[in-house]
Nucleic acid binder design. Sequence first.
DNA 1: TAGTGGTCTAGACCACTCG
DNA 2: GAGTGGTCTAGACCACTAC
Lengths: 251, 251
Amino acid sequence: MANSQRTARYRELAAALRAEVRSGVYSEGGRLPSEEALAVAHDVSRGTVRQALALLRAEGVVTSRRGTRRVVLEQPRVQSFAALSSFTRWARSLGEEPGGAVVASQWRAADAVEAERLRLAAGARVLWVLRLRTLGGEPVMVERTVYPEPVGELVASLPPDAVSVTEGLEAHGVVLADADHTLDLTLADAEDARLLDCPLAAPLLRERRRTSDPTGLPVEWSEDRYRAGTVAFTVHNSLATTALARTRGDA
Amino acid sequence: MANSQRTARYRELAAALRAEVRSGVYSEGGRLPSEEALAVAHDVSRGTVRQALALLRAEGVVTSRRGTRRVVLEQPRVQSFAALSSFTRWARSLGEEPGGAVVASQWRAADAVEAERLRLAAGARVLWVLRLRTLGGEPVMVERTVYPEPVGELVASLPPDAVSVTEGLEAHGVVLADADHTLDLTLADAEDARLLDCPLAAPLLRERRRTSDPTGLPVEWSEDRYRAGTVAFTVHNSLATTALARTRGDA
DNA sequence: TAGTGGTCTAGACCACTCG
DNA sequence: GAGTGGTCTAGACCACTAC
């Protein structure tokens, strides 16, 4: 049942260093100790230290350059993968009260785009769900999600007023491991306007997201539309790590 | 002058594997050979193979899970850091004709936000530049950039019709290494509307970006506003690598 | 020239998946 | 139980920075 695996040492070390940066032990613009010094201090090999630092590097907590010690960057805002996959967890991490209700839901045949994104055959049976998400009671986002058949069965079995679908899925052993997000802008259609209580054609920030499990199998394909001013997305990238692209609109 | 350092083996290996995935040697949803097999085939140690695979992992090219071989994911759209830092390079990578012109430019004292973002003292002298960017002659984006003094001197020395500022800076030895991007939505003000040839209060996709050099020193702080439908941003993230955050709007 | 991060090796053990 | 990826070690050499 439980997850009894010990946390890797490099993750513990990364967490410790992250906390030290946050608490000001290493100040912004300052330098970290050398890898060798960290290895001795924490009684691990240099390889383990480097694994920990690679994590912080990808998060934008520190830079690195051959020849000089690592530089502490400004405190970035990076969230765990879990907080990104789950509206509920995101809201809680903000200290806000998340709400969610299923507005409509139906089994239907996947259209061409959905089938392609979920790697299903065209016309495969999928569960389509329309949800309204609120923050502190205020409508913030409209979510239209499509689930492939086996996952859909689980979702359908959840109570319709379940606040967190993600947590419901996890309870059934579904593991989310990878996500691709595409961010652009769209205008509110009649349904959006009604649900979000905004004018027709009001601008909305659109996030299209495909989430997969560790085997690469798509678990959900979702289009979320946020009211203007309610959300922003932040990305860190660098010469060493890039997972960001700018693309021509739609296409 | 030239950059004579050899490419690291793991980067060569990553490039080779990337090419093989792209060319269909390993098909989508298929499995990669084991790390051990790759090590033998390419005559490197397993550690080097793992470094290469870590790159592909961060890019979303392959997944990984203990116990089974790596799975090839759908071909992701990831761009080099250079293509993200430079409008010109991005446009070229699309096969479109980039254009850019300085609309206005002035030395002035940094305001509170600019000073904070560039890590300068409040009131420090900065170069502010307003540019209009076009794609195939069509106005696409308005860019308002602030440079700290030394970088500003270089920018000011470039010809005002220089298409690529980034390349101009690189020619003077400025290296861009890290960037933070915040994406949200805003409305066109009078200046935006005039330059982009769109209605007042038309929705625009806003990217605020701070780019730093390898020592962590901010090199530019920019607010770019794209016309609706001209651009989208794509991000890949995973349990292993997260560099993405969703934040409350503005705040 | 000393110190530091980048690359690479060879080997070990473990946790997990799957037949 | 065999195969595979995840973690960790100990050591080596190199490229680059800074003094």
